[in-house]
């Protein structure tokens, strides 16, 4: 079947089977490999994308169901080629990743969280990433990364006299 998907601001037409998950469609039809296939049954969170701004698991939805809803993948968060979003930057700086398998999902969860709550408490961050497994970092640096990104996005790391 032919479907139209709104990915990272562009509508793309793909030919796919009804049984193709959004995850497989992104990776195999659209060559967007940033959504990772971990468990493929909703347990690990590695396949997270933003669906209408909310973090969802792309392995738990068929591509055909996603027609017409704006989707953002990790490929869509950087402001320009060769640049990183403030959240991605913060992950680099705090060593919020090791092997990187969980990272695109963690970054997208952070995007969804900070869009909703610019001033999250540590528990809010822990809760937000609680559906995403990381087998490397032990999570502490990921939490630090999101806290740092939140601070920067609020403008809190500007010199005191420049803060509004």
């Amino acid at each position: 079947m032919r479907i139209k998907l709104d990915i990272n601001g562009t509508v793309q037409e793909v030919d796919t089977e009804p049984r193709t998950t959004l995850l497989d469609c992104l990776r195999d039809n659209l060559n967007l490999k940033g959504a990772h296939a971990g468990c493929e049954h909703g347990v690990c969170g590695a396949c997270t994308v933003l669906f209408d701004g909310e973090a969802v698991r792309s392995c738990l939805m068929f591509a055909a169901q996603a027609e017409g809803t704006p989707i953002v993948t990790i490929e869509g968060v950087s402001p320009g080629p060769g640049e990183l979003s403030p959240i991605q930057d913060a992950f680099c700086e705090t060593h919020g990743m090791q092997c990187g398998y969980c990272t695109p999902a963690m970054v997208l969860v952070a995007h969804a969280l900070l869009a909703d709550n610019p001033n999250p408490k540590r528990e809010d961050i822990v809760d937000a990433i609680s559906g995403n497994l990381c087998r490397c970092t032990g999570y502490a640096q990921i939490i630090d990364a999101i806290a740092l990104a939140a601070e920067r996005l609020r403008g809190d790391n500007r010199p005191a006299e420049l803060r509004s």
Binding site: R19, L60, M61, F62, A64
Partner: peptide, 26 residues
């Protein structure tokens, strides 16, 4: 019938469920 699919889709992925047709009520 498929609604949110958060149970049905994993069941289908594991082939514990094999519907011939999905009726999407979303």
């Amino acid at each position: 019938v498929i609604a949110g699919g958060q149970t049905l889709v994993p069941m289908m992925a594991m082939r514990l469920a094999r519907p011939t047709r999905l009726i999407d009520i979303n």
